[in-house]
Structures are given as C-alpha cells and as structure tokens.
Design a protein around this nucleic acid. Structure first.
Lengths: 150, 150
DNA sequence: TATTGTTATACTCTATAACTATA
DNA sequence: TATAGTTATAGAGTATAACAATA
C-alpha cells in the first residue's frame, strides 16, 4: 500500500492548489486578496504607470483603477501624476505597503520552506532543480528569458 | 550562463501560477470560472447536499447558494429536495454539466502533459514522483490519507 | 432548540463602453 | 486622431446576519 503515485496531472494540480492556498491564507491574515498581494509584489522593485501595471497583472486598465483606489484608501500605494506626460499616473508603494509586502513575502517563504521540509534534503534539491528546469524550458518555448533583467 | 536555478519559493510559486493559469484559461474557454470548474469537478463523482458541497469548496453555505443558482441557470447542475431530511437539498450534475466537466478535464490533462513534455522522460517521471511524495508527506502530516476512498 | 438552506446586504474584483484630459 | 486614465454600469464571487422550514 506504499508509494502509490498520483497521476501527473493530479500531482501538478494538487501542488498548485496547495501552494496557492498557502499564499492566499497568508494574504488573508493581512486582509489582502491574492490580486492585491500580486500588485504589492510587482510594485516592490519598481514604480509603474497604471497602464503598465495593468499589463503586468494582465487586467483591464479600468480594473486596475479600482484595485489601486482600494489600496490607496488603505494607505498601501500612492498615485502621482507624471510631470513629463501629464496623462500618465505613476503608482508606487508607501512605507506601509512596502512593509506589508516584505512581511507577506517572508511568511510565504517560511511556509514553502516548511512544506519542502517534508522531503529529505537530497530530494528537496532534486525537486526544486527539476521545477526550475521545467519553468526555464517552458519560458524558452514561449520566447521568454526567465532571468532577463526586466 | 546556463542552469541558474530559481529560489525554491520562486520555483514553487511560479509553477503554481503557471498550472493555475492553464486551468483558468481552459475554464474561460467554456465560460467557466475557477470555482465553477472546481464545483463541477467535485460533483463529477458524487452528489452532495449544499452543506457538504460548501465544506468541500471551503466556502460559506450562502456563497454556495449563489454558485449553484448560477450553474443551475446555465443547466449545469440540478437541485432536488431530499426526501428523508426535507431540510436538505441535493445537488448533482446534469448531462450538460457532466459533458463540460469531462471535456474540461481532458483539455487540462492535455495541457499539463504538454507542459511536462518540456522535460526528457526520465526527469518527467522523477519530477512527478517527487511531487507525489511531497503531497503524500504533507497530507500525512495533516492527518489525511491522500488515497482514502472518500 | 438545532440544523439546512435562502435572502438581504455589502464589498471586492472584473470587463465593456463612454468619457475627459493630454499628446 | 491617439493614448492614459477614470467613470458608469453590470455581473460573478464572497461573507455576515437574519430568516423560514424542518428536525
């Protein structure tokens, strides 16, 4: 009765639900949704116009208007009109938003580390290596360099 | 410049987003959301009361009332009052719903198979084996038997 | 009294279409 | 004219609280 393996599709699907669930649960602890968390993550290393933020999140610009408005109301992001192109609005994290993003990321990393801790070290290394290979191969097939400076 | 690996957390997070995205895209082709797809999947092998369906989906019963109502309006599920406990309502798939669930599952399986096809066969087997081990170990730690008849 | 399910209400998230302001 | 962003509107999805029917 040991070592029955899941079907490949089930394995990937269940792992994905598990990991997404971890992220969602941590976000919820801070009163954040998944998409708000993604937005904070995207803005952690850069400042973006509404338009480019929408592209990053793969959302319509009108959706992002509301998303940013709600985050702004909570003091997590700030909007400033661009000086060069005065049609544009630049969005960036506030200190509060930055703190929340950092805390959430640390917690999620701890959760994933704990999850991976279920496997012996050698298998853990093997697993993450294989996933990396898979992601790189898939990105390459899509014409994307996963390690591009961006 | 070859074989740089992602950090473990990034690797798992990105894989999860990728797989979830595949599922979401297929669901959208059929005009279904992720949660509607999950519901069809849960009901594929069984019939459930509203209450137990809510537990399965980890949603409030009031949320499931709306979820089922929208699916029912589209002819995907059917509600019937239980005869033994007349407070209960039993939900099950219609033939249309069953067809949609089957088609969606087949498409998603093909997508995942194509994704895994980016890796050579030996690594593919290794990867899915390791993921299975991880899921079994995690489930065990939570006191769940992943292979329980249910 | 307790449980099952629905309804009323409110909020987030999403898109489409129409609009304003700037280029 | 074209682009950046917002607003108006509509609908899905979610939860809390109050409710009706049944146990």
């Amino acid at each position: 009765m040991t070592d029955r393996a899941l079907q490949p599709t089930d394995a990937l699907a269940q792992l994905s639900f598990l990991v997404t669930g971890l992220l969602e649960a941590r976000a919820a602890q801070h009163g954040l949704s998944l998409v708000q968390t993604r937005m904070l993550g995207v803005l952690r290393d850069r400042t973006l116009t509404m338009n480019r933020l929408a592209q990053r999140l793969e959302l319509d610009k009108s959706s992002v208007t509301g998303l940013v408005a709600r985050a702004e109301r909570r003091g997590l992001v700030a909007r400033t009109r661009s000086t060069d192109d005065r049609r544009s609005v630049t969005v960036g994290l506030t200190e509060v938003g930055r703190g929340l993003a950092a805390a959430g990321e640390a917690e999620f990393t701890a959760d994933v580390t704990a999850l991976l801790g279920r496997l012996p070290a050698s298998e853990r290394v093997q697993l993450t290596g294989l996933i990396s290979r898979l992601l790189v191969a898939e990105a390459e097939a899509q014409g994307i360099d996963l390690f591009a400076a961006d």
